[in-house]
Design a protein around this nucleic acid. Structure first.
Length: 359
RNA sequence: GCACAGGUGGCCGAGCGGUUAAUGGCAGCAGACUGUAAAUCUGCCGCUCCUUGCGAGCUACGGAGGUUCGAAUCCUCCCCUGUGCA
């Protein structure tokens, strides 16, 4: 995938950097990890420092000194997660800021304005992330709203693009809850709007994992093969391998970064909670099979100490490892695809998937 | 020596006659985390036993006595700590 700020090899995992930062990890280290694209958030950057300020600073890439591709989420997920602080109408969403309680209005048009100011390589249509559980009628209503918003997003994005030089692209988002026929309808009608890429939204919002997979499996084949297919907000290491094998090109998830800050590390042997007493005198690296800079240098005992002492370095080192693990995982998926060994990789991943703890 | 103020579970610190194994906080132990309101949240946290239950027994609020149906809470003496005065 060739974007204005560089090439992204797919399938790709995108670290989440909501507020202009992949929490705890500086940009130059992200580059060292070979992260090829990161995600930023419209809602958060709009609130602070403000999209106009970011524009003034030369756009998000320049502002945060990240020369590689960026995708910005539209704020649609906040429609979902700020439940209680927002009110949805046809026109858009009225939010209460989680920072100071002030009221703000987001419409598809406004989201496009903000994303245009931020200047990410890929912008996302403003959608309503359907909650789980949602009954059929509710899922349909949500899907319809998202489609109308998708059209408005596309149209306004086109207007903005025509007024100013811009190589940004805008992806559409499929909703439809857990209903395959609604997903199909959402996909087909979205494709009519002709986006350069398509995303599956509204997944990993509490539904059983088998259902997530089912929806992806059912919906992906409906999407154009020559355009990026993005599943938003997934997943665990085993899941991203599974989904990549199904043909997903892009995924993002806060899990590796958030879990790292909470002491949960992903390894080739399964999950490892570095806070556990059992690691207090363990001189081995997080993951003996991992070649990341953290595993090359630091012991579990030391990392456990940092975590217990709430040293900020714990967040940094843990996040570096988890991201390295995720990015390595995607790299090995890409390698397996190119050498035709994907089935073998899948088997190995499944075999270790159920393992709760690393040795 | 005198005068105040205190001595509570690993630590700090509430409670000042009865739903008190004893509020909180910290520390400790474990769990959760999926387009980030998350460096957050949840549970456990005196000991023993079991039919793991708003279960049973035991031990506990400096020490020893006492008052009371009932005391961490009231009284007496003793020990210790802090501050002030000698």
């Amino acid at each position: 995938m060739i974007l204005p700020h560089g090439v992204v090899q797919t399938p790709a995992f995108m670290p989440v950097g909501t507020a202009g930062s992949v929490k705890a990890v500086p940009q130059h280290m992200l580059e060292a990890l070979d992260a090829q694209i990161i995600l930023g958030n419209t809602y958060h950057l709009y609130l602070r420092p403000g999209h106009e300020l970011v524009r003034k600073m030369g756009g998000l890439h320049r502002f945060m000194s990240w020369p590689r591709p960026i995708l910005t989420d539209s704020g649609g997920f906040q429609v979902f997660s700020l439940n209680g602080l927002r009110n949805i109408t046809e026109a858009g969403v009225r939010f209460r800021s989680h920072l100071d309680g002030s009221t703000h209005f987001f419409s598809p048009e406004h989201s496009m304005e903000v994303q245009f100011a931020l200047g990410a390589d890929i912008a996302m249509a403003f959608d309503e992330c359907t909650e789980y559980p949602a009954d059929y009628g509710r899922a349909r209503q949500s899907l319809e709203l998202t489609l109308r918003w998708a059209k408005r997003s596309r149209d306004h994005f086109a207007t903005l693009s025509s007024q100013r030089e811009g190589a940004q692209s805008l992806f559409g988002i499929i909703q439809g809850g857990i209903y395959s026929d609604l997903r199909r309808e959402s996909a087909e009608r979205l494709i009519e709007l002709d986006f350069p890429g398509y995303a599956l939204g509204g997944l990993s919002v509490g539904e059983p994992r088998a259902l997530t997979r089912e929806i992806i499996q059912a919906t992906l084949p409906l999407l154009p093969k020559d355009k990026p297919r993005y599943v938003m907000g997934v997943g665990y290491p085993e899941e991203i391998v599974e989904y990549a094998a199904l043909g997903v090109d892009m995924m993002d998830c806060v899990l590796p970064t958030r879990a790292a800050r909470h002491g949960l590390l992903f390894t080739s042997g399964g999950r490892l909670n570095i806070k556990n007493q059992r690691y207090s005198e363990d001189q081995s690296p997080i993951d003996p099979e991992c070649s990341c800079m953290v595993c090359q240098r630091y012991s579990r005992a030391y990392l456990r100490h940092l975590q217990a002492a709430r040293e900020p370095l714990a967040a940094t080192l843990n996040t570096l490892h988890n991201l390295a693990f995720y990015l390595d995982t995607m790299r090995s998926v890409r390698d397996a695809i190119s050498t035709g060994n994907l089935p073998g990789l899948l088997d190995r991943t499944r075999a270790r998937g159920g393992q709760p703890e690393a040795g």
